[in-house]
Design a protein around this nucleic acid. Structure first.
Length: 487
RNA sequence: CGGGGCGUAGCGCAGUCUGGUAGCGCGCACGCUUGGGGUGCGUGAGGUCCCCGGUUCAAAUCCGGGCGCCCCGACCA
C-alpha cells in the first residue's frame, strides 16, 4: 500500500470511499470496466449478510432455487413496463459456439420473466400456492457510471419471488419482506433505515408498488438499501401464471419480488466508517476480535504467543470470530492502525506486562484512541467481549440514528427544502404529481426517496411533522415524503 | 452521451515543454535494529515507458491513429 493515510471524509467523501474499499481489501477493479472483484475480506462480510438474511427467509417458509443466467430475449419483452425499464441496460448474447443464435439471449438483469415462464408450468391449482422462492446469484445491468459495490455491471444479490392466490396475501408478503430487511438492517448491520413506498417514477419496472428501505450515508446522501415489490398480476398475465380456484374458476396469480444486493456493503462502509477507515457492525464483521501480540525477544514472544493462542481458543469456544495477528514484519502500532482501517470491532492488545498480570488491554473500534481502551482479566474476556460487542452494536446504531435525525429536516417552504437537501434529507409535503417531483429533481438534484410507512419515526419523538401543503406547488399535500440526493 | 484527468517497476508518482545510459517514494526479499499507536539502517530483486505507425543517427519524450481506466454531470439496485 503506497499511501498510509486515507483522505478524510470531509475533504473528499467519494475518494475516501474509493480508497478505503481498495485498502481494506474488500474489493478491487476487474479488467472489464465497471466490474468488480470481491476479495476474501469483502466476501466474508457478504457471507455473513447472506447468513443473516437466509435464516430469516427460511424461517418465513421460503426455499432457495437456482434459475439460469441466460434468458431468451423475447421474455423480457412480454411485460410492457419491464421492457421499457430494462432495455437500455441489457447485455445481449448473439453468438454461441461460433454460430449466430436464432434468438438472442440476455444476461439476466433480474429473473421475474424466466421465473414467470416456469411458474406457468408448475402452478395449476390453488393447492399449489403460495410459491415462496429465493435465489442467491448475480445479475448484469449495463450501467453507465459505476462505483465499487454501489453500482457495478454485475452484482451479487438475492432475489425472492413469490406467487399467491389473492391480492391481500401478496401484499402481506411484500410488507413482510420489507419488515425483514428493516429488521436485518437495524439488528445486524446497526443501520437505521426508513421503510417506505416509492413514487411511480422511482418504482421497479413492472411493479404496482415498490417499497424500499432508505438509509442516510455519512455525507447526508440517501442509499436505497433493499427493495420489496408488489407486482400485482402484471407478470402473471404476461406469462400466463394461472390457477384453478375452489370454485373451479381460472385466476391469475398475484406475485411479489424482493432483493438486497452487495450494494448493502457500500451502505455499511458509508454509514459507519470514519476517518480511520471501516467500522464494521459486530454481527456482520468477518473478524469480531483481533489479538495483537506484543513482545521484544524470544522469551517474551513464547510467553505472549502462548497466552494469545490460548485466548484465541477460549474466544472461539464462546463463538466469537477471532483472529490472531502473528505477522512478523509489522510493529504492534502498525497493526493497530491496519486493523482499525479494516474495521474490526474489538482489538485485544496482549504484551508481557499483561501476561504477567493475566489481563489484556481491550480497545473498541467505535471509540478510537485511549478512551476506548480498558484492561480486563484474561479469564473474563469471553464474557467481557461478548457484552462489549453488544454495546458496540447499540452505540453504532444510536450514533447513526442521531446523525440521520440531525440531518433530516421537516420543511414547509421550498427555500428550506433546498437548504435541507444540501446536507441531508428533507421531509416534506407532496401533492403526489409527477411533474412536481420532476421539477424538484431538475432544480435541486434531490429525488423522492420514499413515503415513509411510519412518518413519526423519521424525526424522532417530538419532531415536527411535514407541512400539509406540497413543498413545490403549494396545493394540498397527498403524501409526506422523504427527498434527498441519492446514490 | 457531454466535461475533466490519467496510462512509466506490485502501488503512488517524477521525467515529456527543450529527443541522448529510465528515476524517486512506498511496498517486496535478506540481515541487523526496533516493538505498549504507522521503528531505524544497510543490501538486493523488480521495466514490452498502454498499443500501432511515422519523423530521426537516436523517441517515455516530437507527429498521426487507436485502446483502456478513473473522476464529475444526464439514467439506475
Amino acid at each position: 500500500m503506497a499511501e498510509e493515510k486515507l483522505p478524510t471524509r470531509a475533504q473528499d467523501f467519494s475518494e475516501w470511499y474509493n480508497q478505503l474499499v481498495l485498502k481494506a481489501q474488500l474489493a478491487d477493479y476487474a479488467p472489464v470496466r465497471g466490474c468488480m472483484i470481491v476479495r476474501p475480506y469483502g466476501w466474508a462480510l457478504w457471507e455473513n449478510i447472506q447468513q443473516a438474511l437466509d435464516g430469516r427467509f427460511k424461517a418465513t417458509g421460503h426455499q432457495n432455487v437456482a434459475f439460469p443466467l441466460l434468458i431468451p430475449k423475447s421474455f423480457i419483452e412480454k411485460e410492457k413496463h419491464h421492457v421499457e425499464g430494462f432495455s437500455p441496460e441489457l447485455a445481449v448474447v448473439t453468438i454461441g459456439g461460433g454460430e449466430e443464435l436464432a434468438e438472442p439471449l440476455i444476461l439476466r438483469p433480474t429473473s421475474e420473466t424466466i421465473i414467470g415462464h416456469m411458474w406457468s408450468k408448475w402452478i395449476q391449482s390453488y393447492r399449489d400456492l403460495p410459491v415462496l422462492m429465493n435465489q442467491w446469484n448475480s445479475v448484469v445491468r449495463w450501467e453507465l457510471r459505476t462505483k465499487l459495490f454501489l453500482r457495478t455491471l454485475e452484482f451479487y444479490w438475492q432475489e425472492g419471488h413469490t406467487a399467491h392466490a389473492t391480492q391481500p396475501e401478496a401484499m402481506e408478503e411484500t410488507r413482510q419482506m420489507l419488515d425483514i430487511y428493516t429488521d436485518f438492517a437495524v439488528n445486524d448491520a446497526a443501520i437505521p433505515v426508513i421503510p417506505g413506498a416509492k413514487s411511480d417514477a422511482e418504482k421497479f419496472a413492472g411493479a404496482d408498488i415498490t417499497y424500499s428501505i432508505e438509509a442516510m450515508m455519512g455525507d447526508g446522501k440517501a442509499l436505497q438499501a433493499g427493495t420489496s415489490h408488489f407486482l400485482g398480476q402484471n407478470f402473471a398475465q404476461a406469462f400466463e401464471v394461472k390457477y384453478l380456484d375452489h370454485m373451479g374458476v381460472q385466476q391469475h396469480c398475484w406475485t411479489t419480488s424482493w432483493g438486497l444486493s452487495t450494494r448493502f456493503i457500500g451502505a455499511i462502509i458509508m454509514v459507519h466508517g470514519d476517518d480511520q477507515g471501516l467500522v464494521l457492525p459486530p454481527k456482520l464483521a468477518p473478524y469480531q476480535v483481533v489479538i495483537v501480540p506484543i513482545f521484544k525477544n524470544d522469551e517474551e514472544k513464547a510467553a505472549v504467543l502462548g497466552a494469545a493462542k490460548e485466548l484465541k481458543t477460549q474466544l472461539a469456544k464462546a463463538k466469537i470470530r477471532v483472529t490472531l495477528d502473528e505477522r512478523e514484519g509489522q510493529s504492534p502500532g502498525w497493526k493497530f492502525n491496519d486493523w482499525e482501517m479494516r474495521g474490526v470491532p474489538v482489538r485485544v492488545e496482549l504484551g508481557p506486562k499483561d501476561v504477567a498480570k493475566q489481563s489484556a488491554v481491550v480497545a473498541r473500534r467505535d471509540r478510537p484512541g485511549r478512551e476506548g481502551k480498558i484492561s480486563a482479566p484474561l479469564a473474563d474476556l469471553p464474557v467481557t467481549i461478548e457484552r462489549l460487542l453488544g454495546e458496540i452494536h447499540l452505540s453504532m446504531y444510536d450514533k447513526a440514528l442521531a446523525f440521520r435525525r440531525s440531518n433530516t429536516h421537516a420543511t414547509a417552504t421550498y427555500d428550506e427544502f433546498k437548504k435541507a437537501v444540501e446536507t441531508g434529507f428533507a421531509f416534506a409535503g407532496w401533492c403526489g404529481r409527477g411533474d412536481c417531483e420532476e421539477k424538484i429533481k431538475e432544480e435541486t438534484r434531490a429525488t423522492m426517496r420514499c413515503i415513509p410507512v411510519d412518518a413519526t419515526d423519521v424525526l424522532g419523538s417530538g419532531g415536527a411533522v411535514a407541512s400539509g401543503k406540497c413543498v413545490y406547488c403549494g396545493t394540498e399535500a397527498k403524501e409526506r415524503a422523504i427527498f434527498a440526493r441519492a446514490y
